[in-house]
Write a protein that binds this DNA or RNA. Structure first.
Lengths: 119, 119
DNA sequence: TGAACATCTGAGCATCTATTCAGCTAACCT
DNA sequence: AGGTTAGCTGAATAGATGCTCAGATGTTCA
């Protein structure tokens, strides 16, 4: 059992606690609204209102999701006057989002190939 | 280019349909049971029963989740006699899982640093 | 054929989630 | 101070999710 010092080699099997944490974090990307929010923030920091308009949601809903994303340390917010400017927490989050989008595009290509072959 | 980590050009903002698909796919990693299943399969193909024992779930529950994962094209199943051997659909899925686990470990390290500084 | 095994499936359920609504706090500006 | 704007929050509600249970389907072997 690899339990003590986790360096950078992967444990043979992911233990329950790690699985729970992975699931918890990945849940952030499991709602279209949050994906749009993160994708918008990936292009640069902006305020809650701008965010709401960019992703087509009410400010309140955006605020709820931002709290979740903040709690998962995926975004950070900083107050400037009466605005709060949000940004991705770090470049890792951008990488994770890129990877997710890339994977979906890869899947989509696979589907197109299948459809073309079938027709 | 400060952001394009993988050299893939991509629309500036992710449209709603892409966001929906990303969320749909990432939902596969948003449940601890599925993360454990995928992590087990990452180590090699195995049958449903072995999978159930490895992840500590009932066969029925595993089967339900496998159907979901199959439908999202994250795993493939092949019948061998009365067993069905499941495996990750392709190496991209392994990459995605690695990335997710790595990200969580990165987050966890950040938390540890904070805790040590706070205590 | 029938028993044993492996897997799948649908229904039921308890729980969780995402949004809306109403009301709140905080900051700015006359 | 009062009014306006930006953002946050709790309650409520409709919908989604994951598990268990019971039973169906398929496969092997005596």
């Amino acid at each position: 059992m690899s339990h003590g010092a986790h360096g950078h080699s992967r444990p043979a099997v992911v233990d329950h606690e790690t699985a729970r944490q992975v699931a918890e974090t990945m849940q952030a990307l499991a709602a279209p609204s949050r994906v749009r929010i993160l994708a918008r923030l990936r292009e640069g920091a902006c305020t809650v209102n701008d965010l709401a308009e960019a992703v087509g949601m009410e400010g309140s809903a955006v605020s709820h999701q931002l709290r979740l994303l903040r709690h998962l340390r995926l975004v950070v917010g900083e107050r400037n006057g009466r605005n709060v400017t949000y940004a991705l927490h770090d470049s890792h989050v951008a990488d994770l989002l890129d990877q997710a989008v890339f994977h979906v595009e890869h899947l989509r290509l696979g589907l197109v190939e299948r459809q073309e072959r079938a027709s």
